[in-house]
Simulated assay, not measured.
Amino acid sequence: MATLRSMPVLQVHDVPRSVAFYEKLGFAAHGSWGDPPLFAIIQRGDVTLALDKGRQDGPIPLNQWWAAYIYVDDAKVLRDEFAALDLPTLTEMHFPDDYGCIDFDVVDPDGHRIAFGQALHPVPGAGLSDDRGRG
Rank of each mutant, 00 (worst) to 15 (best):
G45D: 05
G127C: 05
E23P: 00
G100I: 01
P124N: 08
K24A: 09
H121M: 10
V106F: 09
H121S: 11
V47Y: 03
L4Y: 11
H13Q: 14
G54F: 12
L25A: 10
D73M: 08
E23L: 08
Q64N: 11
N63R: 10
D74V: 00
D105G: 07
G31W: 07
G26T: 04
F116Y: 07
M7E: 12
D80N: 05
V77N: 14
I41E: 15
Q43N: 09
D46K: 06
I60E: 05
L87E: 05
G34P: 15
A28H: 14
D46W: 15
A119H: 12
A84G: 08
L87D: 02
P61T: 10
L120S: 03
I42T: 01
L120T: 05
W66N: 15
L38M: 13
F104K: 00
H112K: 04
F116M: 03
R134H: 01
D131P: 05
R134Q: 11
R5P: 07
T89E: 12
M7Y: 11
F95E: 09
D35K: 07
P122M: 03
P124Y: 03
I114D: 03
A20E: 05
I42Y: 04
D110M: 00
D14I: 01
H30S: 08
F116V: 06
W66H: 12
S6M: 13
N63V: 08
A83L: 11
N63L: 10
S6H: 06
G54Q: 14
F82R: 07
Q11V: 14
P122Y: 03
E81M: 09
N63H: 15
A84F: 03
G117N: 01
L10H: 05
R17F: 06
E92L: 04
Q11I: 13
S129D: 11
